[in-house]
Amino acid sequence: MNAAPAARYPIWTGGRDALRAEWTKLCTVPGPGWLLGAVVGLTVAVSAAADAATRCPVGMTCSVDTVRLSLTGIQLGQAVVAILAVLVICNEYSTGMIRVTLAAMPRRPVLLAAKVSTTAGPVLVAGAFAVLGSLVAGLLILPGHGFTAARGFAELSLTHGPTLRAAVGSVLYLGLIAVLGTGIAAMIRDSASSIGLALAVLYVFPILTAFVGNETWHDRIERYTPMAGLNIQATTGLRALAIGPWGGLGVLAVWALTALLAGGLLLRLRDA
């Protein structure tokens, strides 16, 4: 702990200690490891199941985006990422640990930055494995179901530009979900409500677009809500998208950073 008045030091003082402390906390409980494993396992499992359930019989034209299809598991993987991000914050509140943490590191912004880095970092690594595993599953399953390169379907190879964009973008997407989860958890502090809100934000908008009849609003929802982030997985029919792949990921980034800022602000303004 710094004995001297905090104002003399730059804002990031103690950042390394905070990082190390957060990393130790993350590594010394079994939960995060299991959750990261679940991110990989569930993502690959759901992706493989979606591949297995889709066929394109000979003689039919199928307008399936094979890359997007083989990354379907991200829809479930993001829920596990949100759990991890929420628990890193909310477990401290439910056990009272947060008071010890803040006594050791009174600078709220540094603490939140350390927390979000130690969460998003491992999530990016797990996300990379999840995405690679999903693509490998697609590579193994889809050609046998009629989705061959000869029929004009995108190859699931990272040398193919749009596939690479979808793969890298999906990993970044999971990282942004971790940031969003951290921000929401810092705002709400209760794990059940935080995770519920995070999942509502992620799942309700895409469902809503299926029901909304008004095209203006349909377009607005696709363009300005976090669901735009999943446009990064699109490799075909980009013109039909309400917002482009990188633009969509940018929209999600704005949501995630806004949530993080709001969480940081509330962390600063409130007593723990």
């Binding site: 596990v80 949100a82 759990i83 628990l87 059940a192 935080s194 995770i195 999942l199």
Partner: peptide
């Protein structure tokens, strides 16, 4: 028994 996992 855990809120976050159960809600999810």
């Amino acid at each position: 028994r855990r809120s976050a996992a159960a809600v999810t």
